[in-house]
Design a protein around this nucleic acid. Structure first.
Length: 803
RNA sequence: GCCGAAGUGGUGGAACUGGCAGACGCGUUGGACUCAAAAUCCAAUGGAGCUCAAACUCCGUGCGGGUUCGAUUCCCGCCUUCGGCACCA
């Protein structure tokens, strides 16, 4: 027997698979399909991380298993290559981002190939290829044409030192990630996508997909739908109304004041009549200077100023109540104004206590001296003329109807979700394919002129004004209007990184199509993605964005299903040995290359799957890696134990059938760790017996193959089991052979195991009872006591209750 | 504060639908092989008590209750950790 040398056999099999195109999808659309998707990486300069290998190995296992089971499998890989780190690296080292990307992609690809993933490389895509981003631009134009893209003044994060607009991810603790300078707010005209128009569908259609509950909850939470009333308050002495949004119209009688956001337009409108306008201005100034970060930091103490000059009138009792401004009311949600019910809202309660405003209880149930009573499940309305005596829920119903009839309010649904800020003042992204014409306004670049190529520039740094570097290339910016032919200017902003990844799973299906995004026939066959695995950190950004784009593409007839992903799972992080997040600065990063070189790809794969619960974070352990290598060494030695035989060994038959069942099920339910444990157990049994038939080995190798594909192929060849392993079919278990005839049955006395007896699985209770009663230990424990009850669960337990 | 997930040996983690808690791996200890070490192989390994030994007994799945013949699993009330959101009316 030769030594187990992964470096030799792994390269060998990777070449064979590639030459034979083993993992390319079949063109036969009559076969059942399985589309497995993992999040494509951002090819950073750091190279592949052991954290990447975890989800990739997981779906590689599922894909390989499904191929054995006769599925036409699409398991593709590509590069999400636009993005800031590349751009920053390019600026620093004066290299074109395209060159940086090319280098990084080559490195990633080499690394992925060395681990032996069964990706169909003929489907490889790169979001920075012009024939890819052509379609990203095309989708954007379709959205623009449908009115889903619009331009608006938006506050952005601005670093005054770098003179650059920052994405939220680049703001760390209120400061610029690059230079540490404090980030301020600046308004800029930005392209926006109307994701809010899809809010309801993005929530409701979650019911049709198989996502982890936590993912659904996070998305629902993020969208933040809440149903309530928009109620109109008259302003005293004016012919004007102030609208507020409330989910608790039942508490209207308890509204003792109102609060509007500092930026609320009402202030400007009546500035001249506000007696304390200076004080108000001062407060506005103070509020606007607070960054988002500070706003959340300073949640403890409420601040605000009363507007003097006019009041609001509560529509249910005609009482005049004061209007305040405060930054705890956000202009961006609802109407930017609230009715304050201090007795039944925590924030209003705190505010009222601080400024000594009246607190009127309208729902009985709590102690409003101590705090607001916010429960809606129990409580009876009081001090509320129209709805006295009702429970909260009935009261909401009744007062809502009343308000609607009187024309004082309308039912309304609000969302926390905001429209998606879609432009970036950066170089390394897809140019937004629009042209501005003084006559025609924004005009899309005609489809036949796509893609709008990213022009060459001297310098990738943003301009002093915060414009994209593209703004400096005059002969690119200046163009003609596609509509009227007059002079016009190109949009110089680019798209965010999320653009290319919002639809990449569609392009994998037909990556070389230059006529359409993908052929309809192929889309219909392959969609939806059967299983998509990725990180939890993408739940509210990428995952939501791509669902939104997909729904839009559904609306315009490009795809035929409403949801892109049938099933979504998430993997846990791999931490350093010290239980901290892996990072360069902590010096605890494990490079997959090192593991492949030292132990082999199969060991890396086995370990990554055996490391623990797939969905939880786990620390890396070099000793754990060694344990997996040891396991594979023992597998390697099986070649010396094989004897001829086309049947399972008698003494192994039950175990093998059990293992087939366990492994088959576990591979599909993210329980790779227990699948491997079952294979280890079976191997231990092989070793105990010391001799196995070829058939025993065949099944064992096929079961292990998805996890450790190289060593299993090699052994298949060495032992000459017929053909090549990847051409085989998945073993099938026989339910009848799983159940052993003779089993060891635990016998309990008063719920405690006191003995074990050997029984036949089909023995009736009488026979089992007889054996149990003869058991020495049982006899000792029931001696001199009365048997009250006996419970028998066939195959599980015999319990005797005594007193 | 709200939403979600989770707490099991020295350690990563197992346990079907309420039925033998600790599978499998790591580590540790002892032994074999070796001049020696590494590697490998064999054995033991939740804690406590008792015993020459075999055996046996008690305790044990974050804490306190409950349901049940029987609870890591179900119910009620807490504590802690992690993830997400956060003045969203």
């Amino acid at each position: 027997m030769r030594e187990y040398r992964p470096s030799e056999i792994e390269k060998k099999w990777q070449n064979i698979w590639e030459e034979k195109k083993v993992f390319e999808t079949s063109k036969d659309m009559g076969k059942p399909k399985f589309y497995a998707l993992v999040e494509f990486p951002y090819p950073s300069g750091q190279g592949l991380h052991v954290g990447h290998a975890r989800p990739y190995t997981a779906l590689d296992i599922v894909s390989r298993k499904r191929r054995f089971q006769g599925y036409n499998v699409l398991f593709p890989m590509g590069w999400d290559a636009f993005g800031l780190p590349t751009e920053n690296f390019a600026i620093k080292h004066k290299i074109h981002p395209r060159e940086v990307t090319k280098k990084n992609v080559a490195m990633f690809k080499r690394q992925l190939k060395s681990i032996g993933f069964s990706f169909d490389w003929s489907k490889e895509i790169n979001t920075t290829d012009s024939n890819y981003y052509k379609w990203t631009q095309w989708i954007f134009i379709k959205m623009f044409e449908k009115g889903l893209a619009y331009k608006r003044e938006m506050p952005i994060n601005w670093c005054p030192s770098c003179k650059i607009g920052l994405a939220n991810e680049e703001v760390v603790g209120g400061c610029c990630e690059r230079c540490g300078e404090e980030v301020i707010r600046k308004t800029k005209n930005q392209w926006m996508l109307k994701i809010t128009e899809y809010a309801d569908r993005l929530i409701d259609d979650l019911e049709t997909v198989d996502y982890l509950e936590s993912i659904k909850n996070q998305q629902i939470n993020w969208i933040g739908r809440s149903e309530g009333m928009e109620v109109s308050f008259k302003i005293s002495g004016k012919d004007d109304i102030l609208k507020v949004f409330t989910t608790r119209p039942d508490s209207l009688y308890g509204a003792t004041y109102m609060v509007i956001a500092a930026e609320h337009p009402l202030i400007e409108k009546y500035a001249k009549e506000i007696e304390n306008i200076d004080e108000i201005r001062q407060y506005q100034d103070y509020a606007s200077k607070k960054s988002d970060f500070e706003r959340t930091e300073l949640t403890k103490e409420k601040t605000g100023v009363e507007i003097k000059g006019f009041k609001a009138i509560n529509p249910v009792n005609q009482k005049e109540i004061p209007i305040w401004i405060s930054d705890y009311v956000l202009m961006s949600y609802g109407t930017g104004a609230i009715m304050a019910v201090p007795a039944h809202d925590n924030r209003d309660w705190e505010f009222a206590k601080k400024f000594n405003l009246p607190i009127v209880e309208v729902v009985k149930g709590g102690n409003i001296e101590k705090g607001a009573y916010t429960d809606t499940e129990s409580g009876t309305l009081i001090n509320s003329e129209l709805i006295n005596g009702l429970e909260v829920k009935e009261a909401i119903e009744k007062i809502s109807n009343w308000l609607e009839v009187k024309g004082l309010g309308v039912r309304k649904t609000n969302y926390k979700l905001r429209d998606w800020i879609f432009s970036r003042q950066r170089y390394w992204g897809e140019p937004i394919p629009l042209v501005y014409c003084d006559e025609c306004g924004w005009v899309p670049v005609p489809e036949e002129e796509l893609p709008v190529l990213l022009p060459e520039v001297e310098n990738y740094e943003p301009t002093d004004t915060g414009e994209s570097p593209l703004a400096n290339i005059t002969d690119w910016v200046e163009t003609t209007c596609p509509k009227c032919g007059r002079k016009a200017k190109r949009e110089t902003d680019t798209m965010p990184q999320w653009a290319g990844s919002s639809w990449y799973y569609l392009r994998y299906i037909d990556p070389h199509n230059d006529k359409e995004l993908a052929s309809k026939e192929k889309l219909d066959y392959w969609l939806p993605v059967d299983w998509y695995n990725g990180g939890m950190e993408h739940t509210t950004l990428h995952l939501l964005y791509s669902r939104f784009w997909h729904k839009f593409l559904y609306d315009i007839g490009i795809v035929s299903c409403k949801e892109p992903y049938k099933k979504r799972t998430a993997h846990g992080m791999i931490l350093g040995e010290n239980n901290e997040k892996m990072s360069k600065s902590r010096g605890n990063v494990v490079n997959p290359d090192d593991i492949v070189n030292e132990y082999g790809a199969d060991t890396l794969r086995t370990y990554e799957m055996f490391i623990g619960d797939f969905e939880k974070s786990v620390p890396w352990s070099e000793n754990g890696v060694k344990g997996c290598r040891r396991f594979l060494e023992r597998v390697w030695r099986l070649q010396d134990m094989v004897v001829e035989g086309d049947k399972y060994s008698d003494e192994l038959e039950t175990s093998i059938h059990k293992t087939i069942k366990k492994v088959t099920e576990d591979y599909e339910s993210l329980k790779f760790n227990t699948a491997i444990a079952a294979l280890m157990t079976l191997l231990n049994e092989f070793n105990d017996i010391g001799q196995i038939t070829k058939e025993d080995l065949r099944t064992f190798l096929i079961l292990l193959n998805p996890v450790a594909p190289h060593i299993t192929e090699e052994l298949w060849e060495i032992v000459n089991l017929g053909g090549m392993l990847h051409e085989q079919t998945w073993p099938i278990y026989d339910e009848n052979k799983i159940q052993e005839e003779l089993i060891e049955l635990p016998v309990q006395v008063n719920g405690k195991v006191r003995g074990k007896i050997m029984v036949n699985i089909e023995d009736p209770q009488e026979a089992v009872r007889e054996k149990a009663m003869k058991n020495e230990s049982i006899m000792r424990h029931i001696e001199g006591k009365n048997i009250i009850k006996e419970i028998f669960v066939a195959g599980k337990i015999y319990n005797i209750v005594v007193k």
